[in-house]
């Protein structure tokens, strides 16, 4: 099995989804999803557009409310209790396709806001932590600029640093490179590879199959709201079991 050297602790799960269902009006986006994420595991979620992969990770931090089944994150079942939800969210970092940085705050302030408001860090503490993580994503030189002054790749790296500033137990990536110009994809993927090497738990929706091969412990293939295949990347890429996965791989590899 490929993947990184970091240990996966199969005995402790961080996300458990059981019979998860999500509907948008009459459309069933997620149909009876069962997924377990172990601590330290790196999972790549892929599938054709509209297959429900983004919806699935958005259910993990309750940005989408599920309609059926259960979802347990870090031992807490997500219901409508706001205290539980915010407790879970503070342990789950999320990176969006469109970055969603706060345009009125500088890069470093973007990273300081939640640690100060949610974790109760003082301004100097939050700044120190933010600078440390901006250094990690190699963008410390832009700390006092505003998001609009940065390139897409730089903005996405800031978004990663912002999520890491909460010291999350798991990171969710929702197509982090899909909105980027091609020449900027690599810098973001490199940052994510580096994170993976640090051993953080990751669930990543992406079509970057090179990244999946290099980093993923498991590839989960979804289609029409269901998990169709779930296995190690080597097997998935070399010998997909289902016709749907074969068709999908043919299409993205051209």
């Amino acid at each position: 099995m490929q993947g990184t050297a970091s240990p996966i602790d199969r005995s402790s799960t961080i996300v458990v989804a059981e019979n998860l269902v999500k509907r948008f009006g009459g459309f069933t986006a997620l149909n009876d999803i069962n997924l377990t994420v172990a601590k330290g595991e790196k999972i790549v979620l892929c599938g054709p557009s509209g297959s429900g992969k983004s919806t699935l990770i958005r259910c993990i931090n309750h940005i989408e409310r599920h309609d059926g089944g259960r979802i347990i994150v870090d031992g807490v079942e997500l219901t409508d209790r706001m205290a539980d939800i915010n407790g879970v969210r503070s342990e789950v970092g999320m990176v969006f396709q469109s970055f969603n940085l706060f345009p009125h705050l500088s890069v470093v302030e973007n990273c300081m806001l939640a640690p100060m408001k949610v974790r109760g860090l003082s301004r100097p503490e939050a700044r120190e932590r933010a600078m440390g993580l901006l250094r990690k994503v190699r963008i410390q030189g832009q700390a006092d600029k505003y998001p609009a002054q940065l390139s897409g790749g730089q903005q996405q790296r800031v978004a990663i640093a912002r999520a890491l500033c909460m010291q999350p137990k798991i990171m969710l990536f929702d197509e982090p490179t899909s909105a980027l110009d091609p020449e900027m994809v690599k810098e973001v993927l490199d940052t994510m590879v580096q994170l993976a090497a640090d051993g953080i738990t990751m669930v990543c929706v992406t079509h970057e199959m090179g990244f999946a091969r290099e980093v993923a412990d498991r590839v989960v293939f979804m289609d029409q709201g269901s998990i169709v295949e779930d296995g190690d990347p080597e097997t998935f890429f070399r010998a997909p079991r289902t016709e749907r996965a074969k068709g999908f791989l043919n299409q993205i590899i051209h």
Binding site: N61, V92, F96, N100, K117
Partner: peptide, 17 residues
């Protein structure tokens, strides 16, 4: 933008903040 609200949710900011 809707993404601004989602980023706040993902960072566990309270509604007030």
């Amino acid at each position: 933008n809707k993404g601004q609200f989602e980023a706040c949710q993902a960072l566990a900011l309270s509604t007030f903040d």
